[in-house]
Amino acid sequence: MMTTRFRCLFLLRRRLTSTATATAITTSSVANDKPNPGTSSERLSLIINKLFYERDPDKLAAAFIAASSSYRFRCHHRIYEISVRRLAKCGRPDAVEAILEHHKSFSSDFSREGFGVRLISLYGKAGMPAHAAATFRQLPDLGSPRTVKSFNALLTAYAQSGDLNGLDEAFRDIPASITPNHISYNILIGALCEKGDLEAAMRTVDLMNTNAISLDLITCNTLLHSFYINKPSEVEKIWEMMRENNIEPDSRSFNAKLRWLVAKGRTHEAVEVVDQMKRNGPKPDAFTFNALLKGHIQGGNLEEAKKLFFDFTKNDCSPNQQTFEILIPYLSETGELDWAVRCCYDGMSRRCFVRAPFLQGVVDALVKSSRVEEAKKLVEVCRKNNYSKKSLQMP
């Protein structure tokens, strides 16, 4: 007898298939992979564009299933991630399952392990690790090889879902044919550090050494970041471990230290670290200067913050989203509205996608200062840059 879960899934698929029949008329030229010459790319782009803007979850799932019968559509990875995330966000794991389980009927695709890895990864992005695990177990039956590549995809799915118990269990029940590599251990260490279990993370490092798997820069940077947050008094052992293993630190290594120094109000020491990086390497990046920028702002040193911002280009860096989100609220609060407005426009021109609440703060400050027309113009430009009426509006 059909269980309740599979009965619900069956009914959903039947409903989606019914809706997909109408959609298939639109997608048939792509699905057959034999459209009129010169129009196939345009038709495929049109279908993908419609999926991108479809907000009804049932219609999205139905149209997706109809379009997926085209091999060329199945090669477009981004629309898969966007659609799965959207369905998961609106609380429709049943629709995610219907879409991805439908893909298991494309047996020829599973001759390449990468197709199975995609399904596992998509289940992870949807926060459905149990489905990711089931897909991993099914790979041999679907005609797909199962190697450390798909195993790492499964570990990532558990990590993305925050299921540390499942991740640990997957590590304990590794198929005999698979040997974990440094990526496998880095995923586990990253999940343990995210949880703040540094003792378990260091035991995993010992396990890597036991299994003759070399540490790499990713391992060490993950540990540095977590130790500076949770156990800064013991972080020196990570730097020592890097020296012993001849692992050269990069800007991310030092950025972890810079963020900690700034958080402790020791901006002058952070400045010294950056000066040392400029002299001896590694080369500072945008995140390096963002850490300093935050330190100067926390210290109320507007002039140093201005100088640093205008020196980004001089230092071969470009401001990013974080730069503007550090700077804009401070400028609004301190009455530096002219510069705050320039930063809003600069962020949009650079496609940095500053989050709407930061821009709303500038709009509100302009209105409060009786600069209503400037506020209206800013909102108008934001609309043209895809900020919705709901996220950004006049007070």
Rank of each mutant, 00 (worst) to 15 (best):
Ser70Ala: 05
Phe64Met: 08
Glu81Phe: 12
Ser70Thr: 07
Asp58His: 11
Leu87Ser: 03
Ala62Pro: 02
Cys75Gly: 13
Cys75Val: 13
Arg72Lys: 12
Phe64Tyr: 00
Leu60Pro: 03
Ala61Val: 00
Cys75Gln: 15
Cys90His: 05
Arg85Met: 14
Tyr80Gly: 02
Tyr71Ala: 13
Arg74Val: 13
Ser70Met: 07
Val84Thr: 11
Tyr80Lys: 09
Asp58Ala: 05
Ala61His: 00
Arg72Pro: 00
Arg78Ser: 14
Ser70Glu: 07
Asp58Pro: 01
Ala62Phe: 03
Cys90Phe: 11
Ile79Val: 03
Tyr71Gly: 12
Arg74Leu: 12
Ala66Gly: 03
Arg86Lys: 15
Ala63Arg: 15
Arg55Thr: 14
Ser83Ile: 09
Leu87Gln: 06
Ser83Leu: 08
Ser68Gln: 04
Asp56Val: 08
Ala61Tyr: 06
Tyr71Asp: 14
Glu81Trp: 06
Arg74Glu: 12
Ile65Thr: 04
Leu87Lys: 04
Phe73Gly: 11
Ser68Leu: 01
Arg74Asp: 10
Ala62Ile: 00
Ala88Met: 09
Ala67Lys: 08
Ile65Met: 01
Arg55Tyr: 10
Glu81Pro: 03
Ala88Trp: 07
Ala88Lys: 05
Pro57Lys: 00
Ser69Met: 09
Ile65Pro: 01
Val84Asp: 09
His77Arg: 13
Arg86Glu: 12
Lys59Ser: 14
Ser69Phe: 13
Pro57Glu: 04
Arg55Met: 13
Arg72Glu: 14
Val84Ile: 15
Arg85Glu: 14
Cys90Gly: 03
Ala63Ser: 15
Arg85His: 10
Ala88Cys: 06
Cys75His: 13
Pro57Trp: 02
Cys75Pro: 04
Arg72Ala: 11
Arg74Thr: 08
Cys75Met: 14
Ala88Asp: 10
His76Met: 08
Asp58Gln: 10
Glu81Leu: 13
Glu81Cys: 01
Ala62Arg: 01
Cys75Phe: 14
Ala67Ile: 09
Leu60Ile: 08
Tyr71Asn: 13
Asp56Pro: 04
His76Val: 14
Ala62Glu: 03
Ala88Phe: 08
Arg74Phe: 10
Arg74Met: 11
Lys89Arg: 14
Phe73Trp: 11
Ala88Asn: 07
Ile82Cys: 06
Cys90Val: 15
Ala63Asn: 15
Ala88Gly: 13
Ala67Trp: 08
Ala66Arg: 03
Phe64Gln: 02
Ser68Ala: 15
Arg74Ser: 06
Ala67Pro: 06
Ile65Ser: 02
Leu87Trp: 01
Ala66Tyr: 11
Ile82Met: 07
Ile65Leu: 06
Ala88Leu: 08
Ala61Cys: 03
Tyr80Glu: 03
His77Met: 14
Ala67Phe: 03
Ser70Tyr: 00
Ala63Tyr: 04
Ala61Leu: 07
Ala66Thr: 04
Leu60His: 02
Pro57Arg: 00
Ala88Pro: 08
Tyr80Gln: 09
Ser70Pro: 08
Phe73Leu: 06
Ala62Leu: 01
His76Ser: 10
Ser69Cys: 11
Ser68Gly: 02
His76Trp: 13
Asp58Glu: 11
His77Glu: 15
Ile79His: 02
Arg55His: 09
Phe73Ser: 04
Ala88Tyr: 05
Ala66Phe: 06
Ser83Phe: 00
His77Ala: 15
Arg72Ile: 13
Tyr80Asn: 07
Glu81Arg: 13
Val84Pro: 09
Ser68Lys: 04
Glu81Asn: 04
Phe64Pro: 05
Leu87Glu: 05
Ala67Met: 09
Pro57Asn: 03
